[in-house]
Amino acid sequence: MKLKYRYMIPLYIAAFLLQTAVLPQLALPVCTPNLLLCLLIMTSFWEEGYMGAVLGIASGIVQDMCFGHMIGIAALCYYAVALGVMAVRHFLYRSSLLSSLLVVLLSTAAYSFLYWGISVIMGSSYRLFYMAETLPFLLLYNGAVSMVLYFIFRSRARRYPEDWYL
């Protein structure tokens, strides 16, 4: 799939609005899925170039402005996750559901640890235990969301034959 900014920007805005205004009303157990993170991972994994990082930074800054104690934590974490996904995307078969799922789960865990680490460095007392407690639920939700995204975009997925043999 050729992901274009003109399609992806409205998608990110919709994800942000869904995540902030709709998902909290559903009162899911423990936490809510991070739609922006799922989209960011999928964009960075499926699409060549820096689109995932650019949109990740933009949505992270907006998220921090609206809800964070400080501006930059989410943006920095999204950026780092996008770079990480970009670094590994050539070593996995990108058209596979399993590869996509694996990347989402690992990236979600990395994001959580990074977010916690930066928060602690910046003086927060958020506990590792709490993060570890919510992480399985976040992995579950994000995994489910990424599967939905995979099936939505699969039909338009761009093939990467060069990945198949790596």
Partner: peptide, 14 residues
């Protein structure tokens, strides 16, 4: 309440 924290970390809402 019209929006809630998206990070699952802070307990901030708008």
């Amino acid at each position: 309440v019209i929006a809630m924290d998206t990070s699952n970390w802070f307990n901030i809402f708008t």
